[in-house]
Computed example of a mutant assay.
Amino acid sequence: MRLTALPALADNYIWCLAGDDGAAVVVDPGDAAPVLAAVEAGLRPQAILLTHHHDDHIGGVSALQARFPGIRVIAPEEPRIPMATERVADGERVQAVGRTFHVVSVPGHTLSHVAFHTDEHLFSGDALFSLGCGRLFEGTPSQLLATMRSLASLPAQLLVCCAHEYTVSNAVFARHVDPANAALRQRHEEALAMRRDDRSTLPVLLADELRSNPFLRTHTAPIRAAVSAHLGREITDDVEVMAGLRHWKDGFRA
């Protein structure tokens, strides 16, 4: 299978997983134009996976349905995604283009957010970014902590295919929180070099994120100490650490 990231909108990626014959699954098409351009080059969309309801993830679906009548549109139980043809929930599986996609509930950024993973790839939408995670627009810190733990428990060899090119900006905050982390420093330097060459910083191994993403490391001493110092009081509760870290990131300015 061939994995392709189609740049879209300001900083989104639309992920396409395609076989040799072009038959493909398209993930979170917030804009139809990049997908239709890929169709002209031989892509044959067979199914669309949607992680959550935000327009920069679903905005191109209607145009793709018009171009490909009957295409499967697979989404969580969410009335704000009215164009879905199939609904999925945590623990379910989807078969498409010869691959099994496992569904994982990942609330936080939105309440109904899901991720999809195969044996090789994790399509995390806005739940997990490289060196960061999505803002809590609807969920709670407790839900975000559970989501990070759920994602951290997946096979470390998975390639994380998140929906935005945020690695460099996330790295600045992450290094502010965890300045002694050598894996994080290396990831930041690599990401800077990639962006200078106009290359994507994604996908990234989940194993690398487990070593360097502070939101996956709230249980570690360096992250707890940093959040405690930022808040001016000792924090030991996991939910409080996550809440403090997310609030810190929301207001952070380099």
Rank of each mutant, 00 (worst) to 15 (best):
A115Y: 02
T201H: 00
L128I: 15
P179C: 08
S112M: 04
N170R: 01
G108Q: 06
H176Q: 11
T140M: 02
A156V: 15
R175K: 14
L144P: 07
G108W: 06
H121I: 12
E120R: 14
R93I: 01
T167Q: 04
S124C: 07
S150T: 15
L202F: 01
N170P: 02
F173Y: 11
L145R: 15
F129A: 07
T140Q: 04
V172T: 15
Q143W: 11
A191R: 04
M194T: 01
V168I: 12
S169L: 07
L202Y: 01
L151M: 14
R185A: 13
L159I: 00
F101L: 04
L131I: 12
S124R: 01
P155D: 13
E138H: 09
L202I: 00
M148R: 07
V94S: 00
H164W: 06
L192Q: 13
S142W: 06
R187K: 08
V172M: 10
P179F: 08
P179K: 11
M194L: 15
V106P: 01
Q186C: 03
A96F: 03
L184M: 09
C162M: 05
C162T: 14
A171C: 06
H176Y: 13
R196Y: 10
Q186I: 00
L202W: 00
H102F: 08
A152M: 09
L158N: 05
D119Y: 01
T167N: 01
L131T: 07
A193Y: 08
V94L: 00
H188C: 09
Q186G: 04
F101H: 02
L122V: 12
P155Y: 13
M194W: 09
L145T: 06
Q186L: 07
A182D: 12
R149F: 10
G98E: 05
R196K: 14
L128M: 12
N181A: 10
L158Q: 05
S142D: 14
H176K: 11
H113N: 12
H164R: 15
E138V: 02
N181Q: 10
S150L: 11
Q186D: 09
T110P: 01
E189D: 15
A127I: 07
A115K: 02
P107I: 04
E138L: 09
V104R: 03
G98D: 06
T167A: 10
M194H: 14
Q186M: 05
L192S: 02
L145C: 06
E165L: 04
V104T: 15
H188P: 01
S153I: 10
L151P: 13
L154Y: 08
R187Y: 03
L202K: 13
T110H: 00
A163E: 11
T201E: 02
F173Q: 03
S142Q: 14
L111N: 14
T147N: 09
D126N: 14
L192M: 13
Q95W: 04
G108A: 09
